[in-house]
Amino acid sequence: MAISLEEVYKIAHLCRLEFTEEEAKVLTEELSKILDYFKKLQTLNTENVKPTFHALKIKTPFREDKVKEFPYIEDILKNAPQLCERMIVVPKVVKAP
């Protein structure tokens, strides 16, 4: 197997995902099969090849540092799962002293 069950659980945590034991087992098999297929790339010599992250040569475009009004604040707030006035509520992240 190209990937172990333990690794699947570790990666799942990094992804902020969780799986049942049954799901994790199936996923381990599926991912192993796919990762084995990826090994095909190791047969290619890429020693002097530069990586491509974008197919076209693009540069970061600059713009004037001007404030523009964003008119859709209310529309964005409407999508929030839980609001308190105009603030989004999340579970507590700090412990009381």
Partner: peptide, 26 residues
């Protein structure tokens, strides 16, 4: 998401993500 995280994770980045980006050049 899992495949992506694996390909980018420490220890596998060079063999997977970086390698794939080089093959993309070819």
């Amino acid at each position: 998401i899992m495949l992506g995280a694996y390909s980018l994770s420490a220890g596998y980045y060079d063999a997977f993500y970086l390698k794939a980006s080089k093959v993309r050049t070819l």
